[in-house]
Design a protein around this nucleic acid. Structure first.
Lengths: 113, 113
DNA sequence: AAAAACAATAAACCATGGTTCATTGTTTGC
DNA sequence: GCAAACAATGAACCATGGTTTATTGTTTTT
């Protein structure tokens, strides 16, 4: 599909898609038309973008997403891939814990105030 | 205490303290010396900075921290204050949920891969 | 066929959250 | 009393994560 359709279906802007592509998060192939150089974005980018949006919301950086996608794509040793992803998972869990502590503090402040 | 001591005890840089102060997160008073214009940072800033560090780590923005501190300082209606803080708590809980979902996805990817 | 919408590319721009630098003045340790 | 460390101020700088703005060319709509 073309970038506009992908953008609309994924709920992100075309500019964001291009930005992600520049940063290696998604990929496109040359379109089949000979008269233009429009790119074709395979269906799986839709799924990826949905994940990226959630993950970005959860505080995962672009760099981390790139690492994760590269690892999951199995470009290298699967054991290495697991390590990369597991490390990110641990970071995320730590972050969730941190949030829990902050929430706890704020709720105590509410009760105490 | 002076900025250097606060910085060291709170584990942040002096520049960060000045940045936070510019942004209304902490406050200082003029020092007692007549020969300089060094500021004095009351003890409670130490506690605040520890909270800010945790909260920033959890993804709370400077603007949110300012709102929260203003609300907790009880500058206005206590009911309003509760609302502000409760709203932030809800946001943080949503963020934690989001992280949980991302972690779940990544763990499934690990199991599936 | 002409206007409106879409696409590619590059560059500039923006907010956030700091950090670094330069300058000037103060205080402290030796 | 003199260098080293500390403080205040302001401005510049940096990374991150996008968004906006040309510019040029293509396609679709009417």
């Amino acid at each position: 599909m073309r970038i506009g359709e992908l953008a609309e279906r994924a709920g992100v802007s075309r500019a964001t898609i291009r930005f992600y592509e520049r940063n290696g998060l998604i990929n496109s192939v040359p379109g089949e038309s000979a008269t233009n150089n429009y790119r074709d974005y395979p269906e799986d980018n839709l799924f990826k973008l949905e994940f990226f949006t959630k993950a970005r919301d959860a505080g995962v950086s672009i760099a981390d997403l790139r690492d994760i996608m590269e690892a999951l794509a199995g470009s290298c040793d699967p054991a290495d891939a697991r390590d990369v992803v597991r490390a990110k998972v641990d970071e995320l869990k730590a972050r969730a814990d941190q949030i829990r502590r902050v929430v706890e503090f704020l709720e105590q402040a509410l009760d105490g105030g």
